[in-house]
Amino acid sequence: MDLSGISPILLLASLMVASTPILLAALGELVVERAGILNLGVEGMMITGAITGFATAVATGSPVLGFLGAAAGGAALSVLFAVLVLWLKSNQVATGLALTLFGLGLASLVGQSYNGIRAPEMADITIPVLSELPVLGPILFQHDWVVYLGLALVAAVWWFLRTQAGLTLRAVGENHEAAHALGYKVLRLRFFAILFGGACAGLGGAYLSLVRVPQWTEGVTAGAGWIALAIVVFASWRPLRLLLGAWLFGGISVLQLNLQAANVPVPVEVLSMAPYVITILVLVLISSGRGRAALAAPGSLGQPFHASR
């Protein structure tokens, strides 16, 4: 056993990278759920983004365009979900599950001609001055731009939820009947929320296929979309806590592997299930504690909406 080999700074730095795909996907889902929609198709949208992003990047030679393509791909798939759920009133749980099935099939079909190809490379952006800081420099300021984008998006969503438009979105998610009565365009708002969710999931998927692996292989997301769903709940629908959740979920895996590398015997399964158990405990706490109304799930989450007048 040699714990001295584990450098906390490097550990946190790799945490930033490891948590990026699940953070991006979870952020999108957070906005969707805040609007009162439960989309269980995150895995399907992620992997669709992974392949459309990869294909775009290979075709154009530009990772940036690749990520744009990924966002577009994820959003395009989410349109299917939106149309079904919002206008055709289908059940959200069943539709989300079907979306995952559809997305996985679509991605591997599209991906068949991309096996074994490498994605164009993406350089890290070391932010001048800041990256020189001791401790914080390597942890925060020596990554690729998508890591920064993820953090910026968290801040943006945090800010957005406080704007007038954000309050409207939250109102729609809390009580769509009342929001409708107040004259808000419930379906239109939800449509854009779902689209945003799809785009974010697509970005998360592309981070795997363009940066982490970086190659197209079937099943490249390997369940990351499901973890993203858990993180949203862990975060009790708060963007800043989402960051914490992504670090926790990503961190457990990174820590576990680091402990193994340092020759510490670890009960891998116990550690892997820990974040989910913690999430359930968090849920219990926020549901039973004080200020319950302010913390619990959006009131209209998962319910269908039909404007009857």
Binding site: R212, T217, V220, A222, V254
Partner: peptide, 24 residues
Amino acid sequence: VVIWAYTWFDPAKEADAAKAMIEQ
């Protein structure tokens, strides 16, 4: 240095495992 990934294929986990090794 041995790390057990408990999977035959999980890109994110494999990348993390490699990183953990490199850091050590």
